[in-house]
Design a protein around this nucleic acid. Structure first.
Length: 376
DNA sequence: AACTCGGGGTG
DNA sequence: CACCCAGAGTT
């Protein structure tokens, strides 16, 4: 039975339940429509013609999973074709010379994968009659096969009910459930495993496993995900809260500190904006920018001494995230319209009103320019 | 928990 | 150029 024939009767099943009518309830673990929606999407938009799907055999599934570790489909596919043409089954691999195996792997990288693959094939001949064992622990005991790869092999090759947790699934789940924290951290990973287990459908595991990877690879991509096409968009926490760009939390590089600042966007009655020249040293040295303060209290004190008007009238706008090499800065802008400087305040503070047409000539930090030149 | 393995794609 | 990718093994 092929993947195509297995999924052919799925639309009829999913039509019975109006999966698209799922309410915008918070994403919860347990009995939900996560898998049903994903499978319905997979039937229409999933990838059904990958090389290792036709024919689908335990050996080919295994080889594909190893090749796809930290490697994209487009890169691995030609290597896969060449490999199975030369070594079409597990006994052939076990009997091959190591140079042959490494030669077929040449250019793919992570060559320990090839050595482990070869050693595992020999172990299968010794221990399991020349076949891959249909058992999670026995598979995990083989070199190069961890928990996720073992689960992927069992579900893809035999339809057994095991959760996977690769980079795609981590990304989908971190966004869908709004999981903060780098997914590589053991505590976060443990939680993601539990969530992955909680969504397992009662059947169609072969398609479900492929569907998760397809969604992550083609819709829920790392950058610029196509949420409009996603079957999980209604109750995806990251989608609903506009946090798809923040989740999953990226691998911590060298723990750059996060700083915050208040930014005052002040407009006078003719629509001119008040800019302040920054000090000659430090970040954004000597550039023109919006008056900036470390916290709300300092910002209010500065406002009271420099401006006529009510600080509380300021409209809080969406925060702006900006990254430097050595720290991250979150700017919290507030906007006032039709305010005026106090009479005694002159240019001695490096303060000036600028008309909109004058901004193009000025040195203004990019995030600030983006803010104040935005339409509106 | 941090490090290592790697070539390729991407902004 | 920096970062990430259908992870797993070692220290």
């Amino acid at each position: 039975m092929t993947a195509r024939s297995q999924s052919a009767n799925a639309p009829a099943r999913s039509r019975r339940k109006p999966a698209t009518a799922a309410a915008a309830a918070p994403a919860a673990a347990g009995d939900d429509t996560f898998a049903a929606r994903l499978l319905a999407w997979f039937d229409v938009s999933g990838r059904h013609d990958l090389p290792w799907q036709h024919p689908r055999s335990p050996y080919r599934v295994w080889l594909s999973e190893i090749m796809l570790q930290q490697t994209q489909v487009k890169t691995a596919a030609p290597y896969f074709e060449r490999f199975v043409a030369r070594l079409p089954d597990l006994p052939a691999l076990a009997a091959a010379e190591q140079d042959t195996v490494l030669g077929l792997w040449s250019g793919l990288g992570y060559y320990a994968r090839a050595r482990n693959l070869h050693a595992a094939a020999k172990l299968c001949v010794e221990r399991h009659g020349g076949e891959l064992p249909r058992d999670l622990d026995a598979l995990t005991a083989l070199p190069g096969i961890g928990r996720s790869t073992a689960a992927a092999i069992l579900s893809q090759a035999w339809g057994d009910r095991h959760a996977i947790l690769d980079g795609n699934v981590k990304r989908v789940l971190a966004r869908y459930h709004g999981i903060d924290g780098f997914p590589g951290l053991p505590a976060v990973e443990k939680r993601l495993w539990a969530l992955a287990e909680s969504h397992l459908p009662p059947a169609r595991m072969t398609d479900y496993t492929q569907a998760q990877m397809d969604l992550g690879a083609t819709v829920c991509t790392r950058a610029d995900p196509a949420c409009i096409l996603c079957p999980l968009q209604n109750d995806c926490v990251a989608r609903v809260h506009g946090r798809t760009a923040e989740l999953p939390v990226p691998k911590p590089g060298k723990a750059v500190p996060q700083r915050h600042a208040q930014v005052l966007w002040l407009l006078d009655r003719s629509g001119r904006v008040l800019l302040q020249r920054r000090p000659p040293t430090g970040i954004w040295a000597a550039l023109w920018t919006l008056p900036q303060h470390e916290d709300d209290e300092q910002a209010e004190r500065w406002f009271e001494t420099h401006l006529d008007g009510e600080y509380a009238d300021g409209e809080a706008l969406a925060p702006i995230a900006h990254a430097f090499s050595h720290y991250k800065l979150e700017l919290q802008p507030r906007r006032w319209r039709a305010v005026a400087l106090r009479a005694r305040v002159g240019d001695n503070d490096g303060l000036r009103w600028f008309a909109r047409e004058e901004l193009a000539e000025l040195g203004i930090p990019a995030p600030i320019r983006k803010l104040i030149e935005a339409a509106g």
